[in-house]
Design a protein around this nucleic acid. Structure first.
Lengths: 112, 112
DNA sequence: ATTGTTTACCTTGTATTACAAGATATACTC
DNA sequence: GAGTATATCTTGTAATACAAGGTAAACAAT
């Protein structure tokens, strides 16, 4: 029951949400995630996810010059990516509601 | 980004919470979960989790006669299980807060 | 020029886990 | 005795987070 396990299926959705805010590159997403409170999501986690999102055609990327370092790979959402983000938000809200129901012992209306 | 993936590390915590409410057996936990809104968590998922929780000494079990069917295996939390439930609740609250921060674009106070 | 630091990206292997699909068995009803 | 609801367990598969490591560019300092 580590946090690692609880992050499964959540990181990709969060990255879609971050990219949706604004065109962004991997290295910066790591710092963004930490600003949002995720303290321990490393690049070894983020980059493989981004490659997968691109393979699934949820994001597109363009390389741009950096001021200090190798070229950055900026990501944007595709239409498919926007759709998937909407699915993620629905799923997150549902699961979130259900878990909170369990831990506060509140049975859902339609199931009473 | 299926719901399956998003449930990883969450089901065990929810089962601990349910057992903590009241002594309970696997078959009933399935129906309890559906009352809490989880529509598709099957017994093939629940039983292996319960066996794992017991192997990790988070729960103990006693067999009791059923009115209709084979004996039920009632589970209780051990002290270790109560501690682990507290850890789960902390982790869930943290992750939940962070994800909500990402999707509402609200940067956490201490990270501003 | 060489050393170090920060930026930036990627790959490989491991461990964990949810779940479908199936198997087994008990108690009750018709 | 056949059918149904109850109750538990096992096996194999697919997905994913992450540590650990590797590569390389730009710049500063010595």
């Amino acid at each position: 029951m580590s946090q690692t396990q609880m992050l499964k299926g959540i990181i990709d959705g969060c990255l879609l949400a971050i990219i949706n805010e604004e065109e962004c590159y991997g290295y910066e997403m790591a710092t963004r995630l930490s600003h949002y409170g995720f303290s321990s999501i490393s690049e070894g986690t983020i980059y493989p996810v981004l490659l997968r999102l691109q393979r699934e055609e949820l994001v597109s990327s363009t390389r741009k010059q950096s001021t200090a370092g190798p070229k950055r790979k900026y990501y944007n959402l595709t239409q498919k990516g926007e759709d998937e983000l909407a699915v993620f938000l629905r799923n997150w809200n549902e699961i979130s509601r259900n878990v909170n129901a369990v831990i506060t012992r509140e049975v859902e209306e339609e199931e009473k």
